[in-house]
Write a protein that binds this DNA or RNA. Structure first.
Lengths: 183, 183
DNA sequence: CAGTGAAGCGGAGGAAGCCTCCGCTTGATG
DNA sequence: CATCAAGCGGAGGCTTCCTCCGCTTCACTG
């Protein structure tokens, strides 16, 4: 790739990050191009679809997911506290950008989504936590990772749409934790 | 209201119902106007915002909600079966039109949404079921109606976005039921 | 029944966003 | 330096939104 093309690409990702943060993942792409100082054609050559741009942006988050799992699992207390801490991290990771939770979770089941690799990282992270719970014998039988991811995605989407704070989200996560753990 | 205006209004609601059913709640309003045989100005005079039109359409569903509660509560089996039957009704009522679940649930907490009266009906229906569960002593302490509505709204939204069938939704509802009931 | 005024109608059209196409520019290479 | 493909910009066609305003039609009155 030519050096100027490389520069433009990086600049586009940087600007898109800011624009999406301000106005959500549905923000006008023409504005991303304008603020990056390139023509729309250039944007669409680098990122043929909106999803391609989303994917490029999320690449930076993905690296952090593992760290968030560890952080949650280091929480003081028993399995329930650890699980809830992780659920909170999960929701918070999904709601970084307006509109992200719904988009990411929607692509969970579908093989050909451009976001598939991203959402798979989230699903894998959740699975690792559930597995650890199972090893401690606190997980109910028949709890499926995909279902839990979708439940959390649903909570995150509601939090996104209604601008909920952590204290409003917590009781929903409590219900899910109760539903997932033996007691 | 003049007779012709009344006719147009009814026709618009009828056509909007069909268009939204085919193409989701985000379908172009100009097409609603075109198919109703009126100018866009007429549509926007009767329904100044998209939400106003949504509200008019949902008015017809609202009458049915009570019947669905009764239907679910008549299910064979114990409290758990009744609750799950109601959860399934709830999700199915929310996913009649593409995009409805997210919109309705988003307006749950906010007083000034044009959909407030509609979503309140759903919330009231759910509350009546939860109250009955509480009277049978099977409900956990501290379970809040709004939280359960949001959880179900989240499930419905995920079902909508991922085109899930009842059999895919059921396990998520199981988790919520476990989380809400004593056991 | 005709006249009148207001209620209501239609659709042109500006604005915003999407995305493509193509002529021009520029970086890489010999 | 010369060459030329890779890459760029932005004009512009398309769709959808929503408003504005001149014309039509209804309802009411004498």
């Amino acid at each position: 790739m030519r050096a100027d093309a490389q520069r433009n690409r990086e600049r586009l990702i940087e600007v898109a990050h800011a624009v999406f943060k301000e106005r959500g993942l549905d923000a006008p792409l023409d504005e991303v191009a304008r603020r990056a100082g390139v023509g729309p054609g250039t944007l669409y050559r680098h990122f043929p679809t909106r999803e391609a741009l989303h994917e490029a942006i999320m690449a930076t988050w993905i690296e952090e997911v593992a760290a968030h799992v560890e952080k949650a699992m280091a929480t003081e207390g028993g399995c329930r506290e650890k699980l809830l801490a992780w659920f909170e991290e999960y929701v918070s990771l999904l709601t970084r950008h307006q509109g992200a939770a719904a988009k990411i979770t929607a692509s969970l089941g579908c093989q050909d989504s451009p976001l598939r690799t991203k959402c798979q990282t989230y699903a894998d992270a959740n699975e690792s936590v559930l597995t650890e719970m199972a090893e401690h014998g606190v997980l109910r039988e028949g709890v499926d990772n995909l279902d839990v991811c979708r439940l959390l995605g649903g909570v995150a989407t509601m939090a996104d749409h209604s601008s909920l704070e952590a204290k409003d989200v917590r009781p929903m996560l409590d219900v899910i934790a109760n539903g997932v753990l033996k007691n």
